[in-house]
Write a protein that binds this DNA or RNA. Structure first.
Length: 576
DNA sequence: GCCGTTTTCGGCCCGACTGTTTTCAGTCG
């Protein structure tokens, strides 16, 4: 067995790398796609690939057949893959890296390598600057400039943008477009924004108008636009001053349904849906459902697209080709959780620790949202930077909360704490203190770089403490800033299923932790979730919408989430 | 490479846009 079991992500990235090399070598594109598809599905597992391997169930993963199962077996058994190593010997690493340059695909990378002898992005840049690329067959001065611009964009780009930053930007662009574009009938965000993915590549916007030209003109004239990247009759791409790329597609209103369906994606969902359409006698594109005789079935609404294919409408959050089409076909899609199902928030801070507002202000903000309860869960003593609370200050805080609770008949403050899970796995407050609180969240904030076994043991120890009710932001990731800790979430889920510990879906857009993939696995395992804002000021409660969307991406229903329940049920749940 | 209520062989989504082309290849989503 390998010294250290490879993570799903590491395996997926190796498979993608194989796909890239095969692509550059000019292999059959469906073989290339097979590696990429398998990589996606392994990343979407939510449980350790190694577990499936031990159970002999690798081929149950969609897109993994006999050949890939054999390769995965070798990889998991030995930590190496001979096939990959032989491929690596054929194409220099720097050539594979060139695929990351916008405008450079497999054919161009191969051309740059074999015809010009370039083997790294740096060499391509130097050659472009020296005007040597334009001499290559099929490339001209414009291509050379585009490649150079692509390399610069690559260096500038910091990867995908967190949902919490992209969403407001998209709304701003849409509002500006609605205000200025002549003849605009509808305009909405599509793409990964509409699917509420945790991170966004480009902003995908869709508009309906009889005449696209004035809409395109208004779009490129928006003050947010820094540069027009490409513009055609139905599609325009721009770079905004914020650095994000935004794509606008314009369609006539009677084709809005197929257009929105197409532009929402995901690509994998669209491919699977279009394959199904072919089986059911249609060719599906953004323009229409086309019958074999060439006649078109136009769909002004998205529901009509799915129903024409015999499917129930699929919520955008589920459109990742992870079984949603089969479920829609059988009529077994889950009734997803809605924002309005949320009756309270079980993670909020006040100015007793590192929050910015009084308990009273936080309570009134929660009441204004229509909540029936709010858990005040300030940090514990060990987190010095957050002015964490000692047992004595917690007792004083309890008195204030009891005082405030006399005020309302329709709302209740709950008293809790977000207790530190210390490096050795012990908790930062004594059991007798924890026993006196309504709900205890246990979280890791320090020692995040511990190795996997120790980190996992810490969290598991906390879960086994009978006073701990919820594990806060279980993976510790900060999107775009910090990878998740080394904690073995697979093990955490297994223990949660035993102990009944609730796992948090931290709704802050920089966390979204648990992520969608592990939420889905938790739901399958019957683990209860709490979707919490982790608010540090009254406005912070508003991030709940991101947490709900992430839970929806994990196929969660209201029944899976404890803070959809009324106060008495919640209290009963945590007392037990 | 995978996959199968039309197939175990022969399929594998579909279209927009650009650049370098005289009709199409490459890239992207």
């Amino acid at each position: 067995m390998a010294e250290r079991m490879l993570t799903n992500r590491e395996v997926a990235s190796l498979l993608r790398r194989i796909g890239d090399i095969l692509d550059i070598l000019g292999e059959d594109r469906f073989r290339v796609q097979a590696y990429r598809r398998a990589a996606d599905n392994i990343e979407a597992l939510g449980q350790d690939l190694a577990d499936l391997w031990r159970a002999g169930q690798l081929q149950e993963i969609p897109g993994v057949g006999k050949a890939l199962a054999e390769k995965l077996d070798e990889l998991l058994r030995t930590g190496r893959l001979g096939y990959y190593e032989r491929l690596q010997a054929q194409v220099p690493e720097g050539v594979v890296d060139m695929l990351a340059i916008p405008e450079v695909g497999p054919r161009t990378a191969r051309l740059l390598w074999q015809q010009a002898g370039l083997t790294s992005i740096a060499e391509v840049k130097a050659a472009a600057e020296a005007g040597k690329l334009r001499q290559l067959p099929g490339l001209g001065a414009k291509s050379e400039a585009n490649i150079l611009a692509g390399i610069e964009a690559l260096a500038r780009r910091s990867g995908r943008t967190p949902l919490g930053m992209a969403w407001p930007l998209a709304q701003e662009l849409l509002a500006a477009l609605r205000a200025t574009a002549p003849g605009l009938l509808r305009a909405e965000a599509a793409g990964s924004l509409r699917r509420w993915r945790a991170t966004i590549g480009d902003l995908d916007l869709l508009a309906a108008a009889q005449d696209s030209k004035p809409v395109m003109a208004a779009f490129t004239a928006l003050p947010q636009v820094a540069e027009v990247l490409l513009s055609g009759e139905t599609k325009t791409s721009v770079r905004t001053h914020a650095g994000l790329q935004a794509d606008l597609r314009v369609l006539p209103p009677d084709r809005w349904g197929t257009g929105l369906q197409y532009f929402t994606g995901s690509q994998a969902h669209n491919i699977a849906l279009r394959e199904l359409a072919l089986k059911r006698g249609y060719s599906l594109s953004e323009w229409a459902l086309k019958r074999p005789d060439g006649s078109e079935l136009l769909c002004a609404e998205e529901e009509a697209v799915y129903s024409a294919l015999g499917l129930s409408w699929i919520p955008p959050e589920l459109r990742e080709d992870r079984g949603e089409i089969e479920a829609a076909d059988k009529g077994t899609l889950p009734e997803l959780l809605e924002l309005r199902d949320m009756r309270g928030d079980l993670h909020a801070h006040s100015d007793w620790s590192d929050g910015a507002a009084s308990i009273e202000a936080m309570a009134e903000a929660a009441r204004a949202r229509g909540y029936a309860y709010l858990l005040i869960s300030d940090h514990s003593q060990g987190l010095g930077v957050a002015r964490g609370l000692t047992p004595e200050r917690l007792a004083a805080q309890r008195a204030e909360i009891e005082q405030l609770n006399r005020r309302w008949s329709d709302f209740r403050l709950l008293h809790g704490v977000e207790v530190e899970i210390r490096s050795d796995g012990t908790l930062d407050l004594p059991d007798e203190t924890l026993a006196g609180l309504d709900i205890v969240i246990a979280s890791v904030h320090s020692g995040l770089r511990q190795e996997r076994e120790r980190m996992t043991a810490r969290v598991v120890a906390a879960m086994r403490n009978p006073h701990v009710d919820i594990i806060g932001h279980p993976s510790g990731r900060l999107i775009g800033q910090r990878e998740e800790s080394s904690v073995d979430l697979d093990e955490v889920l297994k223990v949660a299923a035993q102990t009944g510990t609730v796992l948090e879906v931290n709704a802050h857009p920089s966390r979204l932790d648990l992520d969608d993939v592990h939420i889905r696995r938790a739901v399958e395992m019957g683990i209860r979730l709490a979707i919490n804002s982790d608010a540090h000021n009254p406005g912070g409660l508003e991030v709940m919408v991101y947490g709900v969307a992430t839970a929806r991406r994990g196929w969660a229903t209201a029944a899976d989430v404890v803070n959809t329940r009324p106060l008495d049920e919640v209290m009963g749940l945590f007392k037990a």
